[in-house]
Amino acid sequence: MAKQLNVFVENRPGRLESVAKSLRNSDINVRAFAIQDRGDFGLMKLIVDKPKQAQLALAEQGFACAMKDTLAVSVPDQPGNLHKLMAALAENQINIIDAYGFVLDPSKQGVCCVEIENLPQTNAAQAVEDAGFTILEDEQLYNL
């Protein structure tokens, strides 16, 4: 399963810059990121080439940072595929905590990173694969 870093950041100027700086200083390459906004704080979600090192670098700078499993699904970049993926999860009563997507290769491939509630207790991976999607493994994702 692919790893994602969730970093606690306060909602005030300069915080994301500070995260980015720590990563730059440790020569970490960010593959994808998103922000989950919760009012006076947020979580910065990062997919990076070296998750373990990135976590250490951020922890060293004092950031509260946790490594989470994320379902990184390769989604063909065509109309209807997001729905197809969501339907597969919905049919199995699987709840999504947070998700973000990006296009990797226009009109060919996109990626959907989905954080699933109680992931280990669900059949999320199976459901997604049964619907015809490919789940990207760690290395595949980091070396996009």
Binding site: L43, G62, A64, C65, A66, K68, D98
Partner: peptide, 8 residues
């Protein structure tokens, strides 16, 4: 930090 699970 040590107790942070990564969940909002």
């Amino acid at each position: 930090s040590k107790m942070f699970s990564g969940d909002a």
